[in-house]
């Protein structure tokens, strides 16, 4: 069976600096996979290479058995790869309902239709409500400008928009980053409730969350894979402790 997402020798250079260095990684279908690493390890660059936001200098990305190395971002999304962003990337002037409905129309392949109103499509509207139910965005928050929502609520929308793509593989780039502790439970609940058949690659700093969520962990340091294995192995790995020198966070697991 082919992997949900697989990279072979994926590399990205910025001038002489190698941000991502020949990373080979396999994410199984339905996996709960975490990608960790110290600051500057190249995690976000790696996500950008996976999603196609950045072009790779070398190496391949395959999605559900198809080579997508040359595919632009929006095609990878159509093939089933969705992502969230470390810092919210939302539509400040649109409401949650508008953004979600727009995204669903795009997913349904209706995005180029110009002769029918988006909000005349009752099926899409119902689906958008359902999706916002899934991430438990309160009703009252659905019809406000996104910019006026508190950050934690925006974070839920961030996840809802990715889910609107009905992904087979979901990249979560630090979903709890920037969320005040009081609201983080909502966000974590939304992460825990993700559909089981979706493969999730979680990029995270918070080791508590990683060890609670992940069934497999890959550690990135200086752009290269340092360790890869079950959480228990990673927690025991001396190399990983070395990489996080001075920090005892890893021992939590």
């Amino acid at each position: 069976m082919s992997a949900a997402l697989e990279t072979r020798g994926l590399t990205r250079r910025f001038g002489a600096f190698v941000a991502v260095d020949a990373v080979s990684l396999r994410v199984e279908p339905g996996a709960r996979h975490a990608l960790i690493g110290p600051n500057g390890a190249g995690k976000t660059t790696f996500v950008n290479l996976l999603s196609g936001a950045l072009a790779a200098s070398a190496g391949q990305v395959s999605l559900l058995g198809r080579d997508v190395s040359a595919a632009p971002q929006h095609l990878r999304v159509r093939l089933g790869l969705a992502r969230t962003f470390q810092v919210n990337q939302l539509f400040a002037e649109l409401t949650a309902m508008q953004a979600t409905t727009m995204a669903l129309a795009e997913r349904a392949g209706l995005g180029a239709i110009w002769w029918r109103p988006l909000f005349g499509m009752a099926g899409l509207r119902a689906e958008a409500q359902q999706l916002l139910d899934t991430v438990r965005l309160p009703d009252a928050a659905r019809h406000q400008r996104t910019a006026s929502l508190p950050y934690g609520r925006q974070r839920l929308l961030e996840i809802a928009l990715a889910l609107a793509m009905r992904p087979r593989v979901l990249l979560l780039d630090e979903p709890a980053a920037g969320v005040p502790p009081a609201d983080s439970r909502e966000v974590l609940a939304a992460v825990a409730a993700l559909p089981r058949d979706v493969a999730v690659l979680l990029i995270e700093h918070d080791m508590d969350l990683v060890f609670r969520f992940a069934e497999r962990i890959t550690v990135l340091a200086f752009g290269a894979v340092l360790a890869d294995g079950a959480p228990s192995e990673i927690a025991r790995s001396p190399a990983v402790r070395e990489a996080y020198l001075g920090s005892t966070e890893v021992a939590h697991g």
Binding site: P72, Q73, Q89, F91, T101, M102, R107, G111, R116, F119
Partner: peptide, 24 residues
């Protein structure tokens, strides 16, 4: 008012996010 029109607003609103939602 169409999905096409809304996808334009999305591109204007956030040109980084729009392609991540499958917008060409």
């Amino acid at each position: 008012a169409s999905p096409f029109g809304w996808s334009l607003r999305a591109i204007r609103g956030n040109a980084r996010r729009a392609p991540a939602l499958g917008v060409p």
